[in-house]
Amino acid sequence: IRVTEDENDEPIEIPSEDDGTVLLSTVTAQFPGACGLRYRNPVSQCMRGVRLVEGILHAPDAGWGNLVYVVN
């Protein structure tokens, strides 16, 4: 998935696990201090948080898609 520190920055590609999840530790390896991800909902244009359970980030209902995710 494509992740950036700010919406206007160049994104970095972060690998997902075989089950489609992303480990928070993978994100923090590239973005120290990150505690989660958010993205701009293409329909509402509002920022939406990615579900985080026990250090594992779960894809939105429509999958990770071609969105750019921003670190929290």
Rank of each mutant, 00 (worst) to 15 (best):
A29T: 11
D19V: 04
N72L: 11
P11D: 04
A62L: 09
C46A: 15
L67G: 09
R40Y: 15
R48V: 15
C46W: 05
L67I: 15
P15E: 09
G33Q: 10
N41R: 05
A62P: 11
N41A: 11
D6P: 03
V43R: 08
D18M: 11
V22F: 01
I14S: 05
T28A: 15
V68P: 06
V50Q: 03
N41H: 11
R38L: 14
V68T: 13
V71C: 08
D9T: 13
T28Q: 14
A34N: 02
I56N: 05
D61G: 12
E17G: 06
E13N: 15
L52D: 12
N66L: 01
V3C: 09
E10N: 09
L23C: 09
G49W: 12
W64R: 03
G36H: 03
E54Q: 13
V71N: 04
P32Y: 03
V70T: 12
G20L: 05
S44W: 05
D61P: 10
V53F: 12
L24N: 03
E54G: 13
R51I: 08
L23Y: 06
P60D: 01
E17H: 01
L24D: 03
L24T: 02
I1S: 00
N8C: 09
D9M: 13
V53I: 11
D9Y: 14
Y69K: 04
S16K: 14
P11F: 09
V50P: 03
Y69M: 02
S44K: 09
L52C: 13
T26C: 07
G36M: 03
V22T: 00
N41W: 05
Q45A: 12
T4P: 00
G20S: 05
I56G: 04
G63P: 00
A59Q: 08
T4L: 08
T4W: 01
S16L: 14
L67E: 08
L24H: 00
F31R: 02
G63R: 04
L67Y: 12
D61A: 12
G20H: 09
N66K: 09
P15Y: 09
A62E: 14
R40S: 08
Q45W: 06
E10S: 10
A29G: 10
V71Q: 01
L52M: 14
G49R: 13
N66V: 05
H58C: 06
N66T: 09
A34R: 03
N8T: 12
G36E: 01
C46D: 15
S25A: 13
D9L: 14
I12H: 08
P11N: 03
T4Q: 08
A34D: 01
V3M: 05
P15A: 13
P15F: 06
I56D: 05
I12P: 00
R51N: 12
D18T: 15
V22A: 06
A59G: 04
R2C: 04
A59R: 07
V27F: 02
D6Y: 11
L52N: 10
V3F: 03
W64G: 02
I1G: 00
V3R: 00
R48K: 14
T4G: 05
R38T: 15
D6T: 11
A59I: 05
D9E: 12
C35R: 13
L24R: 00
V3S: 03
Y39M: 05
V27Q: 00
